[in-house]
């Protein structure tokens, strides 16, 4: 039974087993490889996408659960989101594998997140390269807040 969802603003019909991981649908059926797999167990957050605006680990979301939803991935930001430029300018991306998920989780934090909001809101997104502070600086910069 096909499932219909809106991916980055485009209505898409997917014919796949309803228990297929949303991550695989995005990467393989839709060719949206910007969303990464780091652990497949919902711990690392590399596969974070927004499901109706809420960050989820797409490796834990079965396709059936995404029926009728709006899914936003890193490709949906089209390289024009202030966070994307800020991550380049402030060292928020090193090896880059956590970056798409991290940016999507940061999008969900809203416009000017507090320090606490960043630390709690990104606690499900692991980064092994940066020690996180360059990520906070990137988000703050995108929010137009003064530099730390």
């Amino acid at each position: 039974m096909p499932i219909t969802l809106t991916i980055n603003g485009t209505r898409t019909r997917i014919t796949a087993h309803p228990m297929t991981r949303l991550l695989d649908v995005l990467r393989e059926d839709c060719g949206l490889t910007g969303t990464k797999e780091g652990c497949g167990e919902g711990e690392c957050g590399a596969c974070t996408v927004l499901l109706d605006g809420v960050p989820v680990n797409s490796c834990l979301v079965p396709l059936a659960q995404a029926d009728g939803t709006h899914v936003a991935t890193i490709e949906g930001l089209r390289g024009r989101h202030p966070l994307q430029r800020a991550f380049v300018e402030h060292g928020g991306a090193q090896c880059g594998i956590c970056t798409p998920g991290m940016i999507m989780a940061a999008v969900a934090l809203g416009r000017k997140p507090s320090m606490d909001a960043m630390r709690v809101g990104l606690a499900g997104n692991l980064c092994r390269c940066t020690g996180y502070w360059a990520i906070y600086r990137s988000i703050r910069s995108a929010a137009g807040a003064s530099k730390r």
Partner: peptide
């Protein structure tokens, strides 16, 4: 700006 920055933040 790092050489690989844009490709990494856009996926």
């Amino acid at each position: 700006l790092r050489k690989d920055g844009v490709s990494k933040v856009t996926g």
